[in-house]
Design a protein around this nucleic acid. Structure first.
Length: 459
RNA sequence: UCCUCAUUAGCUCAAUUGGCAGAGCGAGCGGCUGUUAACCGCUAGGUUCUUGGUUCGAGUCCAAGAUGAGGAGCCA
């Protein structure tokens, strides 16, 4: 507040509100503190769309009501100038904004800083490169503002549900000694005299230790993958929540996941309806995400994809949909599969060979394992990957050797199975993919404030 | 790592067969009492990604490179 050292007399009595509360102040004289998002004029009228972080509201100045010099300042104020505006709230259906429908008739107007006139982010559509180079400004635009507010609700709902259902937050390390699933996709850093350390790509193995102390736990933090993936579904730094539960089998895991996801969607519908509407999200599609989700086996899913492929005429699409039992699903497979349902769908029992080493085999079917992915509808695909973990120490050691993982680094993990091993399960949910699905965003880079991709670490 | 595409004004894009570098938005100035991507008039704004080549002449054709995007593989 260095620009405004002491409050004036009038400031001491003014009633500062936030824009998202404006409906509660109809007819009152209030003050808002924010930034000029857009300015238009019509002779003796000036319209400012002002944002204050909580919403966007139209402020109107009429030349006849104000000192001429003040009206001149208002009608010339550059976009993004920071301002403090006092005026009377009135309901008006013509008023744009978020939530909209109310406007402020300007009575006094203080400029904190008049912005430079060459603000780079014009109010129009931008290409991806320009938008990402200007991410520090892009987040001021309503679409990005709406997505990031929904992201905050999703994160809050994640913690709320887990905290209310007996899960304990256990922060797992970000600097780790070795790969959980191979070293090729890890970011590497020097670690004093201990050699290399790696940025974590999962907290799961540590959570498997934590459950034997706390029963039900979750970790929630950034995750790092150095994969050279350049798609609309990939970031190199993303946030993942990973619950882990003792005495829990695959069916119980699916029960937990569907309650968890339904709660998150419910909270967004309660808290962020104006944001969803501003994004033109099909809200009725989200309202269907309740109750039980369909559960289909990998075997059934392969059959369904084969049927869809047989009906596909486009030769390129047909080639992408080619599948045989034993193959992992690609993005196209997930897309056509989820389009068959209007809720998230569980696919369980994937082939052992395409999944991680620590998953429990299906009873009597060692070629399949007790894994389950949750695929979001409308073509969004995998948002959760989970499994029942292997509890037999001998088989686990065998798998570590088969995958040629450094046995010595997994000693502590193997010891867990020797001292009170129980059936246990867990899953990881990618926050950004979940945000993309709920917001209906077509690219994951818009779902995190400052995305990190293979080609971008600025800003 | 592989495949495909793109790069022209601050931004989004045009530019016919190789023949004068253009528009809209944004910015500045002027006009307008209800604007919603306002509208009307005027002004300013260019290393056509880089380097080399072909040609009387290259934004356009050729070669190499740079940068970015989408996708595959892998994954959340």
């Amino acid at each position: 507040m260095g620009l405004r050292p002491t409050p004036t007399k009038s400031e001491e009595i003014m009633k500062i509100i936030r824009v998202n509360d404006i409906a509660a102040h109809d007819g009152e004289e209030v003050t808002i503190q924010g930034w000029v998002y857009k300015r238009t004029g019509k002779g003796k009228l000036a319209f400012l769309l002002v944002r204050d972080g909580s919403g966007f509201v139209q402020c109107v100045a009429f030349k006849g009501d104000l000192d001429e010099a003040l009206f001149d300042i208002i009608s010339r104020i550059p976009q993004e100038s920071s301002v403090i505006i006092t005026g009377t709230v009135r309901k008006d259906d013509r008023a744009p904004g978020l939530p909209g429908g109310y406007e402020l008739g300007i009575q006094s107007f203080e400029v904190i800083q008049a912005a430079d006139e060459d603000y780079p982010m014009a109010l129009k559509e931008h290409g991806a490169d320009f938008a990402l180079d200007n991410r520090h400004f892009w987040i001021r635009m309503p679409s990005q503002w709406a997505i990031l507010r929904i992201r905050a609700t999703i994160i809050s709902a994640i913690r709320e549900w887990l905290d209310d259902n007996g899960f304990i937050l256990m922060d797992t390390p970000i600097l780790t000694p070795a790969a959980a699933e191979g070293t090729t996709t890890l970011f590497e850093t020097e670690y004093f005299d201990e050699g290399k350390a790696y940025l974590a790509q999962t907290g799961q193995l540590y959570n498997e230790a934590n459950i034997f102390a706390f029963g039900k736990v979750y970790c929630f933090g950034p995750t790092f993958r150095a994969e050279k993936s350049k798609t609309r579904r990939h970031l190199t730094e993303f946030w993942m929540v990973e619950p882990e539960i003792a005495f829990c089998d695959l069916d119980e895991l699916m029960n937990i996941e569907e309650q968890f996801v339904a709660h998150i969607v419910k909270r967004v519908l309660e808290k962020n309806r104006p944001e969803l509407e501003s994004l033109d999200r099909d809200i009725s599609a989200l309202e269907k995400v309740t109750g039980e989700f369909p559960r289909i086996s990998y075997d059934k899913a392969v059959e369904m994809i084969k049927e869809i492929q047989a009906k596909t005429e486009d030769p390129e699409e047909k080639a992408f949909l080619e599948i045989e039992w034993g193959m992992d699903f690609g993005a196209r497979h997930e897309t056509v599969l989820t389009q068959q349902f209007d809720k998230p769908v569980f696919v369980y029992g994937y082939p052992t060979q395409v999944k991680a080493f620590y998953m429990e085999p299906m009873p009597g079917r060692p070629e399949a394992c007790k894994s389950v992915d949750l695929l979001a509808p409308e073509g969004y695909g995998e948002i959760i990957g989970g499994s029942e973990r292997m509890s037999d120490p001998d088989l686990l050691l065998q798998r570590i050797r088969e995958h040629e993982l450094p046995e010595e680094a997994f000693q502590w993990y193997l010891q867990l199975r020797q001292f009170g091993s129980v059936p246990h399960s867990g899953f990881g949910m990618g926050v950004e993919r979940t945000v993309a699905w709920i917001c209906g965003t077509d690219h994951i880079r818009e779902t995190i404030p400052f995305p990190r991709t293979i080609k971008r670490v600025y800003p």
